[in-house]
Design a binder for these strands. Structure first.
Lengths: 256, 256
DNA sequence: TCGCTCCGTTCGAAATTTCGAACCAAGGTT
DNA sequence: AACCTTGGTTCGAAATTTCGAACGGAGCGA
C-alpha cells in the first residue's frame, strides 16, 4: 500500500477545522493542529491560492471556506440518486405535517444529514445539511444502527461508553442494543430529547434494492408541538415517506 | 509570501478532475495531470484514507468523490446568507411560473450556480447546483458581467476571443460589451440558446447593501414553452424575485 | 499454457519540502 | 517614545517526499 502524503493530510485537517468555525486565523489553526507557524502559513497560502480558503483582511488575517468546496460537494450530491430522490419525498412529507424532515446516512459512529426540508416557518433550509451528529443520540442514527448486522454494530460500539449530547442520551452500549431491538421491532425510532432537549424526532429506515438500510428519514418538531396523537400521525407519515423513498431506491417490500 | 505546497496543489487538482467525471482510475488521473503513476497512487491513497475519495473495487480500481466534500460544501453554503435567502425566494418565483429558477455568482470568467429550484416536473433539483459555465454564454453571467466596472470587465475579457457553447453564443468581446450595455439599460439579460440551444433564460441582478451586483437570478424554460408573452411575464417575475432577494441582502433601491 | 499488457505495490536515492531562526511591521501598553 | 507581543514573511539545512526501477498479480488473447 503506497504511503500517505502528510502535507495533504495536514491541508485536509485545516479544511476540516472550518466545519466547526466559520473563520479562523493562522494562529488558531496552528494551535488547534499543533503545527509550526511557518507550516501553517504555507498550507494556508496554498489553499488560498486555489480558493479553497478565502482570506479575510484584518489583524490578524482570518480565513473562510471557499467556493470550490461547494462545487465539489454539489458534484458529490448531484451524483447520489438518494439525495435527488430524498429532496422531493422529504418535501412532500414536510408539506403533509408542516414540520422539519431530514434524511441522513451513517458514517462511522455518526450520522451526516444529506437533506433537510423545513416547515413553512421562516426558512433556514441549508443549515443542517452536512451536519454530523453521534448516531446513538438521534432518531435517524438509531434507525441506521438498527439496520447494521451484529459484527458491524459491535465495531461501531467497540469504544465502550458513549458520549451523550443531553441527560436523556443513551450512553450505555448494552442499553442501546436493547433499544435497537425495539427499533427493529417497531420499524421506527424516537429521539426523546437525546440530541436536543427541546426537540422530538421520529425516524424510519430507507432501504435500497438489496434491502439494506442505506439512509433514514426523520420528522422533527419542537417539544411544544409534540403530542401523543401527533406522534402517531407523524410516525405514520415518516414510515410512508421512508417507504416511498425506499421504493425509489429500488427496494421491493416483501410480505413478512 | 510563503511558498505553496505542491503536493497539496496536486491533491486538489485530482479532486477537481471529479467535477467533470464521476469515476476515474489511477491511470486516468495520471494521464490527465501528467503525473507519475507512483505519485498518483500516493495521492489517491491519501485522499481515500480521509474519505475524500472512495475507491470502487474493480480492475482497474476506480475512485469517486466522498462525503467529507459534501460536508465542507454544505458548511460553505450554510454560512452564506445569499444561499439561504435565495432558496426561499427562488422557490416562490418557481411556484409563480412553474419553470426552473437559478441563482448564480461570478467566479473569474465563469458563473457558478448556488441554487436551483425546478418546476413541478419530475424533480432533479440538485443537478445544476455547483455547476460552472462560461459567464458570457448565460443570462445570469451576462447580468453579472454587466455589473462589473470597466477595469474588472476588461480583466475578464483580457483573453481575447471567447469560446462559445453553441452557434448562438457571443464570441467577440466588443460585441459582448455592446450587449452588456443593453443589459444595463434594460435591467435584465436574455440567453437565447447561447448556453443550450433548446433553452431560453431571462435573468436579473441581485444587489447587496452597497449596491454591488453580487449574484443573479434567472428563470429558464425549454424553447417549446417560450413565448413573447411568457417572456414579458417571466422578465417581470425574475425582476421582482431579484429585487426581493436584493432587499434581503440589504439593498435599498433609490429612485433613478 | 504462454506471452504480453496493465495494475497495484515496494523501496531508496535524488528532489523537494519542512520548519526553526531571523527579520520587519503592526498594534497595544506603559 | 520605548518596549513588548503578535503576525506575516524569508531562507536554507535537516527532514521528508517523490518517483523511477523493479516485482508480482490479474486479465486477456493466441
Amino acid at each position: 500500500m503506497p504511503r500517505v502524503v502528510p502535507a495533504v493530510i495536514r491541508a485536509l485537517d485545516i479544511l476540516e477545522l472550518f466545519l466547526d468555525r466559520s473563520q479562523l486565523s493562522a494562529r488558531d489553526v496552528a494551535e488547534r493542529l499543533a503545527l509550526p507557524r511557518t507550516t501553517v502559513h504555507e498550507l494556508l497560502v496554498t489553499l488560498v491560492a486555489r480558493s479553497y480558503l478565502i482570506s479575510v483582511p484584518g489583524q490578524p488575517v482570518e480565513y473562510r471556506l471557499g467556493l470550490p468546496l461547494f462545487q465539489l460537494g454539489s458534484a458529490f450530491a448531484g451524483r447520489l440518486d438518494l439525495v435527488r430522490e430524498a429532496q422531493s419525498v422529504a418535501r412532500d412529507v414536510a408539506a403533509a405535517c408542516n414540520e422539519a424532515v431530514h434524511v441522513a446516512v451513517l458514517d462511522g459512529a455518526d450520522v451526516v444529514y444529506l437533506v433537510k426540508v423545513d416547515s413553512t416557518h421562516p426558512v433556514r433550509m441549508v443549515s443542517g445539511v452536512g451536519l454530523r451528529l453521534p448516531a446513538h443520540c438521534t432518531a435517524v442514527g438509531k434507525v441506521l444502527l438498527a439496520g447494521l448486522d451484529r459484527p458491524a454494530l459491535n465495531a461501531v460500539l467497540a469504544g465502550g461508553a458513549l458520549a451523550g449530547m443531553t441527560a436523556d442520551s443513551i450512553t450505555d452500549p448494552d442499553r442501546l442494543r436493547e433499544h435497537l431491538e425495539r427499533v427493529r421491532a417497531e420499524g421506527v425510532a424516537v429521539d426523546n430529547g437525546e440530541s436536543d432537549t427541546a426537540m422530538r424526532c421520529v425516524a424510519a429506515a430507507v432501504r435500497d434494492h438489496s434491502g439494506a438500510t442505506v439512509a433514514a428519514m426523520s420528522l422533527s418538531a419542537p417539544i411544544i408541538r409534540w403530542t401523543p396523537a401527533g406522534h402517531e400521525e407523524w410516525a405514520g407519515l415518516v414510515r410512508e415517506g421512508a417507504a416511498t423513498l425506499s421504493a425509489r431506491m429500488g427496494f421491493v417490500a416483501t410480505p413478512r
